[in-house]
Design a binder for these strands. Structure first.
Lengths: 140, 140
DNA sequence: CTACTTGCAAAATATTTGCGTTATT
DNA sequence: AATAACGCAAATATTTTGCAAGTAG
């Protein structure tokens, strides 16, 4: 029997209001503002509980630190090289990816796609001529 | 100045001959057969060195344990739910994936795709209608 | 009440690092 | 001979767990 506690509610509410796929420690830092005596173990414990119950999902994408999000459906992620934020990417070709594997006899149940690069906020301004002296203009 | 050592050669040779994307500990277990006094730290140290030099690549796909491979080009992976082996998947739609993100203003430099499911060896025999017998009846 | 949950500290897991010694160039 | 690399142990970093005390149902 899972009991409702102030800690659980606060942790879930915090995650729901954070679109950047925070780590357990980020969530800990945030909930501590409202509940200073909460333990990091409680945060980890409840994030694991929610994950096991299928209410949230855990993203093991950023090397070492797990991140969490409220979405539980299959979708891609974009992880910025500079600010390290993680964004959701709606995939349109999941079918295609699956087919590639299926052709070789693999049975695909789900996938994890992480794109790396620069998010809009972290890209150097491209419209300004003033920075053109740096001469770095990435082209496809 | 990077010096050539028996340890480095053995570690690299072991990785080159293993197509299953082994972890550092797997590699350690393997090289110890030939060099019993080698240290796990040496394995980790050299895997990191090779990775930093771009000679091999590190895969952070399996939650906790890093895996390594000799390929350094961008490609996908299939991670079996049962045997936990990791296989290479040649992507044909990397462009498409990139475009999805680019349309939203993201600048994609590389990607990581991990498909989860069952590899050919771990799939239950599908031809049999009944599961009356424990023995698998291969009939390809 | 009594079973689940918390907070704290210690343990567990994975990887890195300090240091004195060994081996490569 | 100089210095990169090794082996070992200790240190880090992240997450989990044992336990006594607190709290929800």
């Amino acid at each position: 029997m899972v009991k409702k506690t102030r800690q659980k509610e606060l942790i879930l509410r915090t995650l729901q209001s954070n679109p950047f796929h925070p780590t357990a420690v980020s969530i800990y830092d945030e909930v501590r503002k409202e509940m200073p005596h909460i333990s990091l173990a409680t945060v980890y414990r409840n994030l694991r509980l929610f994950t096991d119950m299928g209410e949230i999902s855990e993203l093991e994408i950023s090397g070492g630190l797990s991140r969490f999000e409220v979405r539980t459906d299959n979708h891609g992620h974009f992880w910025c090289n500079t600010c390290e934020s993680v964004f959701d990417i709606e995939m349109i070709d999941k079918e295609l990816n699956g087919r590639v594997a299926r052709e070789k006899g693999f049975e695909v149940s789900n996938y994890r796609l992480v794109l790396r690069g620069l998010c809009p906020d972290c890209q150097p301004a491209r419209q300004a001529d003033t920075i053109s002296s740096l001469g770095k203009e990435p082209e496809d």
